[in-house]
Every structure is written in structure tokens, then in C-alpha cells.
């Protein structure tokens, strides 16, 4: 799209959405937010880049190995579930508190790592769908020509 306003605004908005999605991800376990919403937020930011600049440009920029990323995300979430199984129940959440030097008391929840897995899955799935759709030259494997 050849809009000057959009081209100027989009990079700024990308940073804002990334920061906001990180906030949602970190904030999610007791308050509104979480991996799914944060993932959607990140993906929306990248989609806006895609809309603003050329489709080819977007494809070159964001043609990351999304399939690997969502596999690892899914594996991370499954591992957190298995970690809960160690204490007797699948997907059981647990909280650990650490006293780190300089930073102070830090509370780590296993639910947070589950959320990170979900975040990776959501971002990667959305963007792999987009790369499939946007690249007109990409031929899905096995399809008839």
C-alpha cells in the first residue's frame, strides 16, 4: 500500500504492539492476558508491516522457519504439562520463589512457560498461514501444478 502516513506510523506501531504483547504475556497468569492474546497481538503487528510494505518484501522479511517454531512451542507446553505430572497431576501448575541478588524476590510460575509455548505456537501458526497465502510463487508440496 502506498500510503505515506501508514509507512511512517507502521514501524512505530510495531514496537508498541511488541511491547504490549510482551506485557500481556508476562502479566497473564492472574490478570487478563496470556500467551494466546499476546501471540495474536504480535502477529497483528507483523501483519500491519506486511500490509504497509510490499507483499514480496514481507515474504522475504518474515520467511522464518515458522514450522520449527510452532513445533518447539507445542513441545514446550507439553513439557510443562509433563512437569506437572511429576507432582501427580498432568498440567498441574506450581510456583517457585527465588531471591536473586540485585533484583529481589522473583516468583516463577510453570504456567508462565506454558504461556510462552502457546505464544510461540500462535505467532508461528498465524505467520506460517500468512507466508503460505502471500507468496504467490510458493507451491504447497505435493499439490498438482
Amino acid at each position: 500500500m502506498r500510503s505515506l502516513i501508514l509507512r511512517t506510523i507502521a514501524p512505530i506501531v510495531l514496537h508498541l504492539t511488541l511491547i504490549f504483547s510482551l506485557f500481556l504475556l508476562l502479566y497473564g497468569h492472574n490478570q487478563p492476558g496470556g500467551g494466546f492474546i499476546a501471540g495474536l497481538m504480535t502477529a497483528v503487528g507483523i501483519v500491519l508491516q506486511w500490509v504497509t510494505f510490499d507483499a514480496d518484501d514481507g515474504w522475504h522479511r518474515y520467511n522464518w522457519p515458522w514450522d520449527r517454531i510452532f513445533s518447539y512451542g507445542l513441545a514446550l507446553s507439553a513439557c510443562v504439562g509433563l512437569f506437572g505430572l511429576l507432582s501427580g497431576y498432568f498440567l498441574k501448575g506450581s510456583a517457585y520463589e527465588f531471591n536473586l541478588p540485585f533484583i529481589g524476590e522473583v516468583e516463577v510460575l510453570t504456567a508462565f512457560f506454558f504461556d510462552v509455548g502457546v505464544y510461540a505456537v500462535v505467532v508461528a501458526v498465524l505467520l506460517s498461514i500468512l507466508t503460505t497465502f502471500c507468496d504467490r510463487r510458493a507451491v504447497i508440496r505435493g499439490a498438482p501444478k
Binding site: 514450522d67 520449527r68 513445533s71 507445542l74 513441545a75 507439553a78 504439562g81 509433563l82 505430572l85 501427580g88 498432568f90
Partner: peptide
């Protein structure tokens, strides 16, 4: 009781691994 999630988890983990390799 503890092992009941296995029929769900084992195919899931395997599917991810199979996708990666």
C-alpha cells in the same frame, strides 16, 4: 491413575517429533 494421560500425550509428543524430523 498417574499414567492415564499417556494415550493423549504420547501421540502428541510423537507427532511434534515426527514433524521436526
Amino acid at each position: 491413575n498417574l499414567f492415564l494421560p499417556v494415550p493423549v500425550l504420547l501421540p502428541l509428543v510423537t507427532a511434534i517429533a515426527l514433524f521436526l524430523v
